[in-house]
């Protein structure tokens, strides 16, 4: 079949990616898995912005710039996230999120 790839296909792909990432973030017991899922979410958001930018008829530079920002932020965030997870591991000797529940009650 010849299907015209419209904007919606990209948006749905981004949505699926977002959903997978979100589910993984909420469900995963391992903190590193959660971090990876956060990356997935970030890339889904990026895809969303790029899709909107490329399907416009005029040059819409703001979207492209914003997706660059998001990429940069995501990189920084994963670095910091890794550091935090490393510190948690050093303190708690575990990476299972079920066992870190200081805020309970």
């Amino acid at each position: 079949m010849i299907i015209n790839i419209t904007l919606y296909h990209y948006l749905i792909l981004a949505l699926i990616l977002f959903a997978i990432g979100f589910t993984g973030l909420v469900i995963s017991k391992n903190l590193i898995k959660a971090l990876i899922c956060i990356e997935l979410i970030m890339s889904a958001i990026n895809l969303n912005f790029i899709a909107f930018t490329s399907f416009k008829n005029y040059i819409f530079l703001k979207g492209m710039v914003f997706s660059l920002f998001i990429t940069a932020v995501s990189a920084v965030q994963s670095a910091i996230g890794l550091v935090l997870i490393y510190l948690i591991f050093k303190n708690r000797k575990t990476l299972m999120s079920e066992e870190i529940e200081e805020l309970k009650g």
Partner: peptide
């Protein structure tokens, strides 16, 4: 009601979203 606060941040994220 306080059982909602189970100390797991991921559940908090899920609730808020």
């Amino acid at each position: 009601i306080s059982r909602l606060q189970n100390g797991n941040i991921q559940t908090y994220i899920a609730y808020s979203i």
